[in-house]
Design a binder for these strands. Structure first.
Lengths: 225, 225
DNA sequence: CGTGAATTTGACTGACATCAACTCAGGTGG
DNA sequence: CCACCTGAGTTGATGTCAGTCAAATTCACG
């Protein structure tokens, strides 16, 4: 199941038609690219299994990770506009995606208003997500950024019916830092600090949120201290 | 003319049908809101005249401007997902918009594949724009951010066939700074510096780009110095 | 086990924020 | 006509958060 099929008011028949346009599955091993910058756009990809990151690099090598995608997320929405992918998508671990040819999807959107509506919700949601990252990068201090990151991850797991208090960070400290506009060292200092303050339990890349309320308050801007 | 009608391969008949769903015009005076946070979403708005800013505020009052919209831009795409507007949209000067009821638009998208395709391009373009702001906020230093901001404005004017070397900053220093994750003071120091370096001519809010190539190089990451 | 990568920790630095005083432009009313 | 007021913008002095650099430690994996 992925973002495109889940919470739409589709009939069984419609679901089947959606299934039919979902193309071949593709395995992407850890560290491999699903697509690269400037690759021509033909398809969206629904993550079935695993974890991805998307990132841009300017010509002087400065990298910015623009998102982490987990099972259920849709990759490639940013490529529709220009007809080429504006970023790299790389698997953080061995992963599996479904290809969804954009041309076929378009056909189906026309035939299925509920799906159209849903597709727009997904795209709009991506715009909202990026706006909140802008807010994070533009106005928050380091501890607040990191708290917001954890709260957001937790919420995404919860939305998928997975453990939301206890999960694994599938990305490295460096990748977290990059996403949050911070350095690996800053993340590395934040972790023991949050632990000391009783917010988290940390075992390497495994995290347990001990005080969700306080973490949320911190993320929401309860003056970082 | 706005983003939705311009570069689509629509027939004259199709153009007319698009025109017909475009609802009443609405004037928004300087400082007034086109819509507010949490207002229910019914329509998109095409800016016909003037200038807007959109911004989010967290509960502790930290504001982040997420975009500046000029004639031809589309407002409200971020509201489709949740059915409410996730930000405020405020006019920077006396402005005029066209209302486009989303329900009617949906009908038309189904009937006009070229328009559907185009609408997706516009949404996808918004995602790309926000990604480049993420890159800006996440990796660039102050002078590079400001240069990128000016280059981007210039490109938008050029795309509209307006003077791209010489234009007016319709937003205050404070608003520029906020958008770029900087303070008003930083912007205020950057301006004379760019002038000293022969990049700009500045007269209050009127700007002339004297050395577009060097400004672009700076924006692209030619080590800010 | 051993090797290289990831992470942690510490000392120092610097870019930008903060605070505060000042200037300037534009509008208003006496 | 000009004195005054207000908000926007500028400039300078100082502080601080997070970056940088470097070394130590732990982890992952063959």
């Amino acid at each position: 199941m992925h973002q495109l099929c889940l919470p739409t008011g589709l009939t069984a028949d419609e679901m089947e038609r959606l299934d039919r346009i979902i193309g071949r599955r593709r395995t992407v091993l850890r560290g491999e690219a699903l697509y690269r910058l400037d690759a021509p756009f033909h398809s969206l990809y629904a993550v079935r299994l695993g974890y991805f990151k998307t990132y841009q690099a300017d010509r002087h090598g400065a990298v910015q990770i623009t998102g982490f995608q987990m099972a259920g997320d849709l990759l490639g929405l940013d490529a529709i506009g220009a007809g080429r992918h504006p970023c790299d998508a790389v698997a953080l671990e061995d992963s599996e995606v479904c290809e969804i040819a954009y041309a076929s999807l378009q056909q189906l959107l026309i035939a299925m208003p509920a799906l159209l509506r849903h597709f727009h919700r997904v795209m709009s949601g991506e715009i909202m997500r990026e706006q909140s990252v802008m807010q994070l990068l533009g106005t928050m201090q380091a501890p607040q950024r990191f708290a917001a990151f954890l709260v957001n991850l937790s919420a995404r797991y919860e939305a998928r019916g997975m453990a939301s208090q206890q999960f694994r960070l599938h990305m490295s400290r460096e990748e977290i830092g990059n996403y949050l506009g911070l350095t690996i060292e800053s993340i590395s200092r934040l972790l023991p600090r949050f632990k000391r303050e009783g917010l988290l339990r940390i075992d390497n890349r495994d995290i347990e949120i001990l005080d969700p309320a306080r973490l949320k308050a911190l993320a929401a801007g309860a003056i970082a201290r």
